[in-house]
Structure formats: C-alpha cells, structure tokens
Design a protein around this nucleic acid. Structure first.
Lengths: 233, 233
DNA sequence: AAACAATTATGCTTTAAAACATGCAAATTT
DNA sequence: AAATTTGCATGTTTTAAAGCATAATTGTTT
C-alpha cells in the first residue's frame, strides 16, 4: 500500500482533528514528508534519552508510553489509539525524551519531522492551539495521576486503570468486553503494583462479580461499582 | 504603590522572559488589564474545581500548587518563584482547575484575564511558543514525578524534594541554607509521606551529616550525598 | 505572664503491599 | 510428542511506611 493511499484511507475512516486545521498547501507539505512505519508487538518506537526528531501519528494499533523505574519496574504513563499524535513534548521542551514509546500490538505509525511541524505552527495559529490544548490536557492528567497513584490503594488504582482502558479503547460489540487484551504485567505497570497484586486484585474483582476474566479477555460487569471503588473503596 | 510603578520595579529587577516577547502595544494592553493582589501566608489564590479566568504572575513571595487527596492529604505538585506564570493550564485545557494555588508566604501576584492572553497568543507566535515550551517542560516534570513518587523509597523522595527546593529557591548568602522555610507538613506533602516520616527522615539525614536542621532552617551540608540518595539510596 | 494552640520529636503498633516460593496451564520450540 | 519457556494463580513471609499515642518545644492569644 502506498503512503498516499494509506493516508487517505485512514483519513477517510476517521478524520483526525488536526487535519481539518490545515491548508491544502500544508497538507501537501505533510504528504511529502510523511513516512509510514510498521512496528511489531512490543517494538520500541523511541526510547528515553533519545533526542526527539519526529512527530508520530498512530494510524493503526495501540501504543503505550512508559517510563522505566526502579528495579526494572515500568510505569505506563499514557495510551494512544488511532488517530493520536505523540512524541512532540520533548522536542517542544528542548530536551531528550523522558519516556519510551512502544507498540502494544502490531501497529502502523506515521512520522513527520518536528522541524516541519515547527514551521507549520509558526504559520498556523490553529495548529499552535491544537498543541497547547493537547499539552494542557495531558498535564492535567499527569498531575491527577500523581495523586491517584500515590494515594489510592491497590483496589482503587486497579479500578481506575480499568476505567482508563474503557475510556481509551472502549468495548467490543457486546458492549462489555474491553477492546484491549494486555498481559497482567501491563495491567500492573498501568496501576503501579506488582504483577502478583494485579492478578490477585483482578481475581478479587471477578469474585465480587464486578468483572469476569477469561485469560486476557476482561468483561466489565458492574461499571458503576468500578467507578465507586476508583473514587475510594 | 501604583500598579504601574510596582510592575516597572519588578520588571527592572528581574526581567520576565515573557515581557521581552511583547510589542509596546501588547505591553500597554497588559498594563491596562493587569491587577495586583496581595495574599497572606497560606491564602488560596484559586481552588480545585474553580473555573480559570486569570493568568497569574507571581511578583513577590512563594506560591505552591497542590492537590487535595485521600484523607486530607495534600500533594504539592509545583512551586513558583518570582517571576513565574501559573493558572493558565486549565483555561487552555477548557476545564476547571484540578489543583489549588496558595501563597506559601505573604505574596504579591498579578492577574491578567486569560481572554486577553488568548487574544495576544493569536497575534504573537513567540507567546504561543512560550506557553508550548512551559507546558512541555511541566509535562515532562510531572511524568517524571509520577515514577519518583511511586517507586522511590522515603529517603530517596525526601532527598529529591530537598534538591527541588535548592533548584527552585536556592541558598541564602552562606551558600548552604535553603532560602525557603517550610513546615514539616509541607515537606511531607512535597515528598509524598506523612509528617512523622518527614520529621524522622530529616533527623536521620541530620544524624548522617547530610544536612543540619535548626527549626525550619535547613542547611545542606553534603549535596553530593543528597543527589546520590535521590538517585537511589 | 499564663493559658492555649500548633508544631516538632520520638517510640510503639499495625498494616498494606512487596518479595518470595511454588504449582499449574498454555504456548512455543525442538 | 517431548521439552522448555512463558504467563497465570495463589499461599506465605517480610518489610516499608502509615497510624497512633504521648511528650516536648515553640508560637500565639488573652
């Protein structure tokens, strides 16, 4: 599949917020500099301490942004779905990446040199606002996450993580099954706990009929209860 | 003191980064809409869930940004010194505040309606970049903080908090004494621990001759050791 | 100055979560 | 198909930090 046809397919399927902000000249600038990359499951797109060069746009698949911590422990910071942009923060902050982006599952990701993006922001106020808005929302999210992850207990943190998964990836056609299938280890890395405790607490939720668990297939049975536990339970 | 003379005094003392980015017309727009407020120690400037209206600029004093968590526990997210801007994130994210800003000590703070700021950003690319840059740096900081506060042990977290205080407020003329005098409770709220543990761990550091403590006066004796503990100790 | 409140200090107890160990099942490789 | 690895599940032990209690000190109000 050519870059152009892939792009047009993606855009026709789910028009990205950003695209509508651009002039046809800017759109041409993008298609000329845009490259598509395919990443396998768990493959790293960019790593902490790398220098930021590209704006990345997730076209297909799922991407996690995480940070390696103490003793090989990871903390998942954000999850991306098509069509979302990432990898720009470090460039704007004029510093190396502080986190790593990796494909959660086989994914197609577009790249656009940040220098090109910078030039476009200089000439397009709406694009500037797009990034100001994105950064502001993310900062609010991270500030909130600081308190959640440090102050809530395990059950509250897991409940919150499950709600995040609902909000990010939604349900299968049955309206119950989470549309993401992740290892217990990733569930743990999302909710700041050990893998053992993620397994244990998922089992506890299943026993309490809040969810059902079948391998990596998680069905949300009682979302209200989940939200209640996340608030404090 | 008039607004104008106070402003000019502040600006001549320590020219704010932002000011140099403005045209004289923009500067007039600011002085016409700028108001100066004085806050007493611990007085709240804005609170979580409020709607953002103003850009705030700290002129004199110290301000903390914090979030109330579980069981009356607070987490201090950021500290401000003159001349720094705050209160704009929620406006840009088009959401109510997720954190509270309060004066750490008696402080003078300027306000400028965000609508005015928005209009200026529309017409001033450098100003847009200023906020993109600030938001990006803050987001990197919050992402890093998530891992620090969840994964480091008490000693590491306290060491990191002390380094943050050095970086933010520096030393008295002796080059050793921290230029901020905060209650043990605030030290605790900065480093995600109980007041008891903040007291205990400060005492431990003093016994190990890493710092000396005399009431709220903290002298940094061995900064290298502190940085080592913060990395993991 | 006396009385009171707030802050700092320290010891003891409890607890939530990590660390560790082991078993089992499913998936992958040979 | 057998062997090996990987992931899931659960029980037990250990530990870091919270919670609680009580003084001692400092600061504030009357």
């Amino acid at each position: 599949m050519t870059i152009k046809s892939t792009l047009e397919k993606v855009i026709s399927e789910d028009l990205a917020e950003i695209w509508s902000l651009l002039s046809s000249e800017e759109k041409r600038l993008i298609t000329d500099n845009f490259e598509i990359h395919n990443f396998k499951k768990n493959q790293i797109i960019y790593a902490e301490k790398d220098n930021p060069v590209y704006l990345w746009c997730l076209l297909k698949g799922k991407v996690k942004l995480y940070k390696d911590g103490i003793g090989g422990r990871q903390q998942i910071l954000r999850l991306y779905r098509p069509i979302q942009y990432f990898g720009y923060r470090a460039y704007f902050a004029r510093e190396p990446y502080v986190s790593t982006a990796a494909a959660f599952e086989a994914s197609s990701v577009g790249s656009l040199p940040m220098d090109v993006v910078k030039g476009m922001i200089d000439n397009n106020r709406d694009l500037a606002w797009f990034f100001i808005h994105e950064l502001s929302k993310n900062l609010g999210g991270s500030d909130t996450k600081i308190v959640t992850l440090t102050q809530k207990h395990i059950r509250g943190r897991l409940a919150e993580a499950l709600i995040l998964l609902i909000d990010n990836y939604g349900f299968e056609e049955d309206g119950k099954t989470l549309k993401i299938y992740m290892a217990r280890e990733d569930v743990a890395n999302l909710s700041n706990m050990t893998t053992s405790n993620a397994i244990r607490t998922l089992s506890a939720f299943a026993q309490e009929r809040i969810i059902t668990v079948d391998g990596r297939r998680i069905k949300i049975v009682d979302e209200a209860k989940l939200r209640q536990i996340s608030k404090f339970g």
